[in-house]
């Protein structure tokens, strides 16, 4: 009985935090402050929003009218396509956290992740109806589609910026500076990863060729 009640409470809490995303996107400064400081957000809700974002992107490929999105299916790898969101997101969170902890940022990695995911809310919120919308408009009305699509991205970007201001307790100027710096740190990380993987593959190739040589001689 208690377990059930507990479960129900957890569930209502989850729903409340998810619903809070709708408040956050309309009241970003207020919302992001309370998100972490008043514990009105949850990781589960953040994960859900991220999942919906990925779902929106994948569904968009399949269900958007070809008038607006022509997909070269031969060139699509669904895992790579999903990774094209997750990988930059991971880099962003780690890069941002790594930099801001050095410069008086108050946010933890968990908070940065949560706030960023909450910031993504407008994307699924606009993109899902857009998929349906794309199927009832012609190319003459393409501007509506384009504008709404841009709004969904711009809104999300501004929300993430606001989130960074609130959770790190930075000024606007400092946030902008650190957003750019995070961009560079992402590039550095990509560079190191590439270096790492190319080194590893070179190393493996070396041992393989040594092994081959041995096999030939024996």
């Amino acid at each position: 009985m208690i377990a059930f009640l507990n479960k129900k409470e957890v569930f209502t809490h989850y729903l409340a935090t998810l619903k809070y995303a709708l408040y956050v996107i309309t009241h970003p400064f207020d919302g992001f402050w309370d998100l972490t400081h008043e514990k009105r957000g949850s990781l589960a809700a953040a994960n859900t929003i991220l999942f919906l974002t990925l779902l929106a992107r994948v569904m968009k490929l399949q269900f958007t009218s070809f008038v607006f999105l022509k997909v070269y299916w031969e060139g699509i790898n669904i895992f790579l396509y999903i990774a094209s969101v997750l990988f930059p997101l991971a880099l962003w969170c780690v890069g941002n956290w790594g930099l801001t902890t050095l410069f008086d940022g108050k946010g933890t990695l968990r908070q940065i992740y949560m706030a960023t995911c909450y910031g993504l809310t407008p994307y699924p919120l606009i993109q899902f109806p857009l998929i349906a919308f794309s199927n009832v408009v012609t190319i003459d009305e393409a501007e509506f589609y384009g504008v709404l699509s841009v709004i969904s991205l711009l809104w999300a970007a501004l929300l993430i910026l606001a989130a960074m201001i609130q959770i790190h307790e930075y000024t606007v100027k400092k946030t902008l500076l650190f957003t750019v710096a995070t961009g560079f740190s992402m590039l550095v990380m990509i560079f190191i990863l590439l270096l790492f993987f190319s080194m590893i593959s070179q190393g493996i190739a070396y041992f393989i060729s040594v092994g081959r040589e041995l096999l030939f001689r024996m």
Binding site: L69, V71, G75, N77, L80, Y81, S84
Partner: peptide, 17 residues
């Protein structure tokens, strides 16, 4: 052309065409 078409969806170009 592919890039411009896929930029709409910001899709990933897998492999060189």
């Amino acid at each position: 052309k592919r890039i411009s078409a896929l930029l709409l969806g910001a899709a990933v170009l897998a492999g060189s065409s």
